[in-house]
Computed example of a mutant assay.
Amino acid sequence: MNRLRTLLFSILFYGLSVPIVLSVPVSALFGRAAVVRHAHVWALMHRMLYRRVMGIRVRVEGVVPPGTYFFAAKHQAMFETLELQLLLGGPAMVIKRELSKLPFWGWAAMQYGGIVADREASAGALRSMMREAKALKAEGRSILIYPEGTRVSPGEQPPLQSGFAGLYRALGMPVIPVALDTGIVWPKQGAKRPGVVTIRLGEVIPAGLPREHIEARVHAAINTLDRG
């Protein structure tokens, strides 16, 4: 049954995603705010399908206070890349360089507010990432990063990538860590399954802490739901 649910979800999600993504240029004519609203239509479609087809529900613990923040989230599935856009009010998002180069989708992501991270972590790439993030902050956007650098399975807790501390220092924004357990119902491989996903918004961490302190606090906070 779960395999059939997963197949139906995939057919509907990717089939509906094509016209949504291809129509981004129309929204882009009206500015970035219109592109963000457009992206939220995609995320709402995803939410409708995971609820009705997959039988997945989301439990949110905590609230986002008013203001702009540097969100640092655990990454276990594609699920949160869309769901967090809705829950966190449309933050700009740090994405891998290879994703930014995908035909059409990469362009659409940059119109939304993508901040390109390079796995090589060269000085030039880090400076470029910081410039992009500061420009989006100046637009009044919050910033979202997956600081472990990649999607991981439940139980995996890799160290934070260096780009997180660099952005934290450059942006001077308070951090809200986001823990989640999406990998339990949305594994890297195999069928997805019904269940309840928990997304936990941690306490606000102030700007200006030493690197070792902010990394330790964020790493601990985003792994509070790890049940691997």
Rank of each mutant, 00 (worst) to 15 (best):
76 Q>I: 02
76 Q>H: 09
76 Q>V: 01
77 A>E: 00
77 A>P: 01
78 M>N: 15
79 F>Y: 14
80 E>L: 06
81 T>G: 10
82 L>M: 13
85 Q>S: 13
88 L>V: 02
89 G>S: 03
90 G>F: 02
92 A>G: 11
92 A>Q: 01
94 V>I: 04
95 I>H: 10
95 I>G: 07
99 L>D: 01
101 K>I: 01
101 K>C: 04
103 P>L: 06
105 W>V: 14
106 G>K: 10
106 G>D: 02
109 A>F: 14
110 M>R: 15
110 M>K: 15
111 Q>M: 09
111 Q>T: 04
112 Y>R: 13
113 G>P: 02
113 G>I: 00
114 G>D: 02
114 G>E: 00
115 I>Y: 13
116 V>A: 08
116 V>Y: 11
117 A>I: 02
118 D>F: 07
118 D>Q: 03
119 R>K: 12
121 A>N: 09
122 S>H: 08
123 A>Y: 08
126 L>G: 13
126 L>W: 05
126 L>M: 15
128 S>F: 02
129 M>F: 13
130 M>Y: 14
132 E>A: 15
134 K>G: 04
136 L>N: 13
136 L>A: 13
140 G>Q: 07
142 S>A: 07
142 S>G: 11
145 I>G: 09
145 I>P: 08
146 Y>R: 05
148 E>R: 10
150 T>M: 10
151 R>M: 10
152 V>T: 15
152 V>M: 05
156 E>N: 09
160 L>R: 04
160 L>E: 01
161 Q>Y: 12
162 S>C: 00
165 A>E: 01
165 A>M: 03
167 L>H: 12
167 L>M: 13
167 L>K: 13
168 Y>S: 00
168 Y>P: 00
169 R>D: 08
169 R>N: 06
170 A>N: 07
170 A>L: 00
171 L>A: 11
171 L>D: 10
173 M>T: 06
174 P>S: 11
175 V>H: 10
176 I>C: 05
176 I>T: 10
177 P>D: 04
180 L>S: 13
181 D>G: 08
181 D>K: 08
183 G>E: 03
184 I>Y: 11
184 I>N: 09
